[in-house]
Write a protein that binds this DNA or RNA. Structure first.
Lengths: 207, 207, 207, 207
DNA sequence: AATGAATGAGGATTCATTCAT
DNA sequence: CATGAATGAATCCTCATTCAT
């Protein structure tokens, strides 16, 4: 049975590995040509496999792309959670959260940037259309709200609607990230994580 | 000659009129079927002209759509400017700005909502890809910054980087609008313009 | 209005003409490569138009092929009806029907033969799957049954279930046509229309 | 050597067994999803073997399907021959033949029905395209002709072209089976084996 | 200027077949 | 022998753009 066990897990590992390779290729393609022009053909080429192979690992294009997004989101959330655990005090957790979120965005800059190939939104409306996107928003928002709630109970923040405050912070962070990605030359708009957190805390800790 | 001049301006007028009609049709189509499914065929049909005619007024689809967005943005800016003029005091101007922005978004809800057909962004990144979108962001941000600067000079807000604060407010408003459009059922996330402005002012007016 | 009228009918005529050209091309392709291998690409090529053009005249492949079949069936039915009208006496009408059916089949031999590209049926089962095929069967069967009924009333045939007798004749004719198409070398199986009608009449006129 | 011989025949037996299993699986798949949707993937799954294994026993899909049809035809012919042997008198043999043919068709209804997924034929043309189908037709027709010939010599039927009469009967039976499969609700078209044989005999036994 | 028929590149997806293990 | 992951040609269909009228 060691043979069986190892051979099975070897197949499993291989499958996971391949899946990862394809998702990585998809990410690279999106970065290169933008989301709307990321075709299965192009992704297969980038992954170095035949078109048909993609369909062995993903049911269809939608699934492949959704998983590509999910992958990156999950990596970021891991990073956030780890970072939050290493810090005590909710205010500090919030600081770390903002810092790490912005850090992650910088690391994945090109990918995030590529998403915006589709002319789609003015400053007033972040797209939350697909189920995956909605999941990400709720996941992140939930995490922020959790910190805020605990902080409220602990008296670090003033009592209030944690979900709403979480939304505020999320949007502030999103805006900062976007500014960084799209107008890196405009110093006036560059915000450090600290600065942004400070601004938020003025609202959240107002006596 | 008068004849020439008048005939030319008549043509000009006609051209502008037609252009407007097409842009309106494009807006209606986007509202009806969503951005990703807004085809030239459909727009021509809605405008009551032949497909080829669209290309007499717009170089290509991209231009047509960019101008459609621009049109709507300009209408909103008009609204904001008018409203600001009717109010005295920068704090009040800011309140009016937030109120009108959110009001406009509600009035054009279907249009904004339609934009989100394309799966596009996680909470961290508002699309600012195309030149048009960039223009809109700068236009709006500039307007906000102007109010803030004057308010700073007038001592209504604490001194600081007006552009940065403008960005903060812009993002907060964007987030509130998005929440309203996409999760109208989730009361916890619904923010009134007043509430949101209050939160922002805690940061902007902190002594 | 002559201008309008003529121009409109000119478009109509053109549309009908083009439709006919494509249907003809489809028939030729089916003849050449067989039904299962008749692709839209191939048909477009044969018709001398672009792939996309096919979709201006037919909603999709199914419709194009169904109309190709319908066209041929309708031509045959026209032929049968005309021939029947030129003959008096139901027995003679039946003879003419058999004769013309077999004649038509011979004229369209290659087309009929091509249908059988799909290995599909043993001698026991004529495919009547699609709505179009069913329509053809009922159309033809109904025509035969009508002659038989009138002939029964006129005393030319013995009373009985006209529909059932129509089915018998239809199958006999189908068999003769098939034999002719697929085994033209086997004299033993070649049946003249007269011979076949005679055989049927033995059953239909038995006292 | 015995060892060799037995081991070889053991392999032979195994090969035949496997082949049979696959053919059975193919039949089940055709019954379930219809001929046009019977894929190698699906057949392999049904047979409980890997896709590649199919190609160890059959050169390609065409061969596998042809053998599947052949198998079923051979089973029917066995049934017909057995039944004919148990009956004396050629007229009776003919009756039994019609009865058994229709009985077999009913027993394998789903299989036959599944064949008709491919839109294929108008009333004028039973598919006899592939070599396999041709073989089946000749096999069946030969069997019928044999009975007819003997019956003619024995004076039970009038002298004539046995092959031709065999074809007539074959087609009548085919028609009856088809009607039964495709229009089971239309009583007018349902023919019992007896009725059909009676009709045929009017022609075959006419003095 | 206006038309709209025609174009054809490009997209997603399927599946018979092969071949390294 | 058996496997099944990988292949890639082939299929149907869409739609932005062009151009003869």
């Amino acid at each position: 049975m060691p043979v069986d066990a190892s051979s099975q897990s070897r197949d499993e590992v291989l499958k996971v590995f391949r899946t990862g390779e394809i998702i990585d290729a998809a990410r690279r393609v999106i970065m290169e040509v933008g989301y709307p022009d990321a075709s299965m053909d192009r992704i297969a080429q980038e992954a170095g496999v035949a078109k048909g192979t993609l369909y062995l690992y993903f049911k269809n294009k939608d699934e492949l792309l959704a998983r590509t997004f999910a992958e990156e989101h999950d990596q970021m959330m891991d990073r956030l959670r780890k970072s939050a655990q290493s810090v005590s005090g909710y205010t500090e957790q919030l600081r770390s959260l903002v810092r790490e979120t912005m850090g992650h965005a910088v690391d994945h800059q090109a990918f995030r940037q590529a998403l915006h190939g589709a002319p789609d939104i003015s400053p007033f409306g972040t797209s939350v259309s697909s189920a995956e996107i909605r999941r990400e928003v709720e996941d992140y928002g939930g995490f922020v709200a959790e910190i805020l709630e605990k902080g409220m109970e602990a008296g670090e923040f003033r009592k209030g609607n944690a979900a709403k405050f979480a939304m505020y912070l999320t949007q502030l962070v999103a805006g900062a990230v976007t500014a960084q990605l799209h107008r890196p030359e405009d110093d006036a708009c560059l915000t450090s994580a600290e600065e942004l957190t400070d601004f938020f805390l003025l609202g959240a800790q107002a006596k």
